[in-house]
Simulated assay, not measured.
Amino acid sequence: MTFISTPSRYSMAVVLVTTSLLSGCDIDVPFSIKVPVAFAGEEEHSIWLMQKTHSATFVSQTTGLSSVVEKACSAGSLDTTEVKSAWIDTMKAWMPLQGIETSNPAAASLNWQIQFYPDKKNTTGRKITALLKSDGPYSAEALAKQSVSVQGVGALEWLIYEPKTMGDTENRCALARAVSQRLMQSAEGLYHAWEQDPWKDQSEKALNAASVSMLAGQLDFVMKKLSLPMGKPGYPKPFQAEAWRSKVSLTLIKDNVAAMYALYLADLDVVLRAKQKTELADRLTKHWQDTVTSVPSGDALKPLLDTPENYRSLIGLSNNLEYLKLALSDEVGPALGMVVGFNSTDGD
């Protein structure tokens, strides 16, 4: 990959590049990473452009998912490869937006509506089961009055992958249609929340705080996605993993890591280098690369919880994420003039 450095965080767009090379180092990466490229004459924040782009992609994926669900149910069965692929693609589009709780309250207010996770008490399963046994009505409007646990991607995963639903095709399809339409509405709301730059006219210090806060919040969320199913050594909790029914928990963590690395490259790396903090920027870039390559291969998380050797690979990934989180608060924050003890709730 060729990284095109820029003197400022402004005037950037996002393009997709291959990553056989990372910053001059021969490191094979199992997925693509988005990095900034400068466009002259624009005055837009790179982190806003990224969220705006990601939210537009999410709208596109949820719209496609709703269409695929409608087509499958019209043909008489939700159990199709196309439905499962569309759901996974929607989840992958959600990963760059997942875990952002600061700076944009309108967007953050939709997070639980889009994904009810963690769901430690199987609230989604219990409420979906109750809805399937009811007489409806099944519509996006009706679901909007129900618990957020039945309005998002987790509810759809339950309907698509849970064996308990296989025998109730009529109600199952009706509810899946409604959930997919409600999810599409939420995605559209998210896009509208990112239409305007929440950092417009803010000071550089405030923008730095927001950028660190966003990345710290996403790191927190991904570390939780990893720690919950890991439990304690010898006592894992595989059913606490995100997307365990669809067996793509690890795939989604890979996408999380790629998205966070892209967010770092698009903004904080540029700012640190502009402030002549080259050693710190180089070290963090190297550790991001190490974190990317430390994500174990495979799609599901559960197989890695079953043996000590595989479990240790998850500990390694967790340690890398923890290092990055500490580096943000203990090194990046002070380097950008923030007080020590900065956390992911700052920068609102």
Rank of each mutant, 00 (worst) to 15 (best):
N122E: 14
S103R: 11
L156M: 09
S77T: 15
G152Y: 04
E70G: 02
S74P: 01
S147L: 00
T81G: 13
L143V: 02
N104Q: 15
Y117T: 05
Q61G: 01
L78K: 03
P118Q: 11
D135P: 02
R126C: 06
P105D: 12
T124H: 08
T63C: 00
G136L: 14
T90W: 04
G136P: 14
A72E: 03
A75G: 04
G99N: 09
V150L: 07
Y138L: 09
T124V: 14
N122I: 03
L110K: 05
W112S: 15
A56M: 01
T57N: 07
L97Q: 02
M50P: 00
I88T: 04
P137L: 14
D79S: 12
T129Y: 08
S147W: 01
D79L: 13
T102A: 09
S55T: 12
W48L: 03
M50H: 02
A93L: 06
D89Y: 06
T57S: 10
L78E: 03
S66F: 10
S74E: 14
M91I: 03
P137G: 08
K145V: 02
K71R: 14
T57M: 07
W158S: 12
D89N: 14
G99A: 09
L132Q: 11
T81L: 13
S77K: 11
P118N: 08
G125V: 05
K92D: 08
D79K: 04
Y117N: 08
K121W: 05
S134R: 07
P118Y: 07
P96C: 09
I88D: 00
Q146I: 00
A106P: 09
A75S: 10
I88E: 05
I88V: 13
T129C: 02
A56V: 00
S55L: 00
L131G: 07
N122H: 12
E157Q: 10
A106D: 15
V153Y: 07
L97V: 06
G154F: 07
Q51S: 14
F116V: 08
S60W: 04
A106G: 11
P118F: 06
E141R: 07
S77C: 01
A75E: 07
G152I: 07
A86T: 03
V83M: 06
G99I: 07
K127G: 04
A106F: 08
S67N: 14
Q151R: 15
A144E: 13
I114H: 02
K52H: 15
I88H: 00
A130K: 12
N104S: 11
K145Y: 00
G125F: 07
I128G: 03
S74W: 00
I128F: 03
T80M: 03
A144M: 02
K52A: 13
A107Q: 04
M91Q: 15
L156Y: 09
P105V: 13
Q151P: 06
W48Y: 11
N104V: 10
D89V: 08
T53Q: 08
R126Y: 10
V83Y: 05
K121H: 13
P96I: 01
S149Y: 10
S109C: 04
K84N: 12
T53V: 04
R126H: 11
V153G: 05
V69K: 02
T53E: 11
W112Q: 15
A142S: 15
P118I: 11
L78A: 07
G99Q: 13
V68T: 15
V68C: 00
T63W: 05
I128E: 09
T80W: 01
